[in-house]
Design a protein around this nucleic acid. Sequence first.
DNA 1: ACCCTAACCTAATCAACGA
DNA 2: TCGTTGATTAGGTTAGGGT
Length: 173
Amino acid sequence: MAQAVSPNNTTAANRRRSRTKFTEDQLKILINAFNQKPYPSYATKQRLALEINTEESRIQIWFQNRRARHRFQKRSEPEEHLESSQDEDHPEEKIQSRGDRRCRTSYTSSQLHTLIEAFMNNPYPGIDSRQQLAIEIGVPESRIQIWFQNRRSRFHVQRKREPDEALEQGQDL
DNA sequence: ACCCTAACCTAATCAACGA
DNA sequence: TCGTTGATTAGGTTAGGGT
């Protein structure tokens, strides 16, 4: 209900990214990697992206969807042992992978200004708008998407706390 | 029409960084 | 140390492409 920007328009600004079609070879590599480690580190995702020649953000989405599918299947099949299945890795690896996330992006005040301005104009930018912003401020498009997600979530939270004055809070820091 | 799944969403949470 | 906020997750929805 909330995510629909404008019901009946196919504006370029709101269009979503075109659907990726993985080849069988790419899928084989992805599935193999998933079976080994369903929560790959950032370094692994980067390596996979390079290996199958796609963007790292696509890898990340693929793993997210794949995990969701697996959880859903497990609900249908509550049988099986869910204790010691594929968790034979050593604790050191776990620690390493836990800390290995993408390093935090720090935005300059001018980049933030551009983002906030765009957000006030349209909090649900499509792929074209996001890519344009990415070029404009020199940040990967995937980071732009994450920024908008976080911004929207926190905006919603804020409205719950202060339903009255939350609307005029959109200034920069 | 129906199915599969990439793309996208919110909400909660983890965690890096600066004051 | 603590608040802000980028990154990741679970879990759900939307929509594209194949049957």
